[in-house]
Design a protein around this nucleic acid. Structure first.
Lengths: 339, 339
DNA sequence: GGAGAGTCTGTGAACGTTCACAATGTCTGA
DNA sequence: TCAGACATTGTGAACGTTCACAGACTCTCC
């Protein structure tokens, strides 16, 4: 109950009084412990409903010395956090799993070094029992922070210097190789790539996979690097690619948003997709269905990524040390009309 | 500190010992109260840094009888919560303001009646001190719940039956009228509308504003109703509009996402925007810049909506009763190339 | 019939704050 | 010089839980 509300909130004492047992017994019932007789349990359960008892989180957290909260740390510009459907889906997946386990999720966006400091203070202050970290880079200061604090952590994606920290991700390299091969099988000869976020493991691995697939045919002039996985970067990247080689007939875009931008540029330059040129993307986000024709892409199980990350954190919180250091989720190819 | 970490977390006692003052004085310094001498204050501040003290939220919340958290309730399907850039921006604005005031934000999505029950339990359990409610409908059960619990609440938007509950929003009706008039001024004669979400005040008001602008020229056959503010609804809505009157030369789409769908259909039907037909949207979300040509639309200050809502909740939490029952934010028209 | 194991229950202490109150000191003005 | 106001400080109690421990009871088996 809030301060403004008249009625006092029921406590464990009220339940104990109502059920004619002690605090201890009520506590045992609430926490599902052994050593409670059937009649006591029934009486307590009835009393809980009668007085409308809900445990006080603050009191419980105080004595148990934890916060019952998990931090969801996104190391990206604010705007991307809002727009990127991928991050949104990861967040939602994590949130669902955590709240089912009665944990609260606190989102923390790091957009500046001031933010970083604030987040580190927050983590050090014991406001969260564990963290899920999205889109960390290699040598990310946040990685050191969680190591130092000895805070149960799970990364979505896996920067190179993760040490023995846990992660859940996908194999960007083999997935990129697979979809590039599929694109080759449609008979394309001059295949380029709009690569992005090369400071992130995901970006670098997608490029590597692309190169794997092409093998000796790989031509570095047909690779354009752009900073972000964004629509506008796709628009500009494709323009450069066309300028470099107008005869290009296939493009692997490092993300669906980029692919949407790529298709925009292609349509403005009068090229027909997929007749003149085939386009494939990566993520299978909501972008993929907004393009025309709909995009062939790699399905990234974003929501599951989030919920598996949450599970790994919960395992550590329960004191189990997860069997796997990292989990890689499968990434089926979704073939639509764009290639 | 976490249970797994060795070092004990510093408490107020450690600070008091270090600064050679009492608990009470430390508490006064932390909470910025009067009646602390300069020398005591300085000693305490120094000690806090030395021992690395961070207040324990659980203990504080326990004695103060509050949770220091605000619920962010979204009454929409999960998927919309993730995709809709508007809701995302509102969320971000609210989150920023709340965390600056040292409040935590807890997102709660209501997608089913089971969710509703869970959320009501959560609110009744005192887990939040206040709530921000997004996209409630008229006669929404959540409205009754917050009234009953006497929980400080602020709505984003204003369903008809809000009573004396506070809200922050925009004037959908006058904004819709203004942009429709602007579209008329470009010389269009046959103007239609793809209306959406008529069960929501926003949807109904946008339609009303459209009708206001057209006055006697209003022709109900040129209004198509679709369920959601979504891209695919825009695609289908425009197809119907063309079928009803192929000579249509102007469209007001109830949202930017719808407008993007509308433009997709127009491009497939071989119509040029803005030469053959002018299109205007509503929201000024990221969609508006993804279309080609970029969309003329009504700017909805989504982030500010969120932060103002948060401010209103915080005011109530401080015991002030806000001066205004509702706040309406200005909505400038952003004129780009689509009309 | 008594030892020992197992089950069930109640109680005091602790978690780390805030808050009201009492005690002390200092200043001001008559 | 002293009353009263005001500033400053310390202390005990309370917030609502959990947890360890001790005590009581009930079996089982020799």
């Amino acid at each position: 109950m809030t301060a403004s509300s008249g009625a006092r909130r029921a406590t464990i004492h009220d339940v104990a009084f109502e059920a004619k047992v002690s605090r201890g017994t009520v506590s045992r019932v609430i926490n599902g412990e052994r050593y409670v007789s059937e009649v006591a349990r029934a009486a307590v359960e009835k009393a809980i409903i009668k007085v409308g008892y809900v445990p006080n989180t603050a009191a419980r957290n105080l004595v148990r010395q934890r916060s019952q909260a998990v931090g969801f740390i996104v190391h990206e510009p604010h705007s991307l956090f809002v727009e990127d459907p991928n991050i949104g889906a990861i967040l939602l997946g994590a949130n669902t799993t955590l709240s089912n386990a009665n944990y609260q999720m606190v989102s923390l966006v790091i957009d500046s070094s001031r933010d970083l400091e604030r987040v580190e203070r927050y983590l050090g202050g014991g406001f969260v029992d564990g963290v899920i970290i999205v889109s960390a880079r290699t040598e990310d200061p946040i990685t050191r922070t969680v190591s130092r604090l000895n805070l149960p952590a799970v990364f979505v994606g896996h920067p190179a210097d993760l040490g023995d920290l846990h992660y859940v991700g996908i194999n960007n390299r083999t997935s990129a190789r697979a979809i590039t091969q599929k694109l080759q099988e449609t008979g394309r000869k001059r295949i380029g790539m709009v690569a992005a976020a090369l400071d992130r493991d995901s970006g670098a691995d997608r490029l590597a996979g692309f190169q794997d697939a092409l093998g000796p045919l790989f031509d570095p002039t047909l690779v354009v690097e752009v900073p972000h996985y964004s629509y506008t970067d796709g628009v500009e990247g494709m323009a450069k690619l066309i300028a470099r080689d107008p005869s290009i007939d296939g493009v692997f875009a490092a993300s669906d948003a980029i692919a949407a931008g790529v298709m925009e540029t292609l349509s403005r330059s009068g090229r027909d997709v997929p007749k003149d040129i085939g386009v494939v993307g990566f993520d299978d986000s909501s972008w993929a269905q907004r393009t025309f024709p709909p995009l062939s892409t790699v399905h990234q199980p974003a929501a599951e990524l989030g919920s598996r990350a949450a599970e790994l954190v919960l395992e550590q919180l329960r004191g189990e040390s997860p069997k796997h250091e990292g989990i890689l989720l499968p990434t089926p190819i979704v073939w639509r009309g764009s290639a």
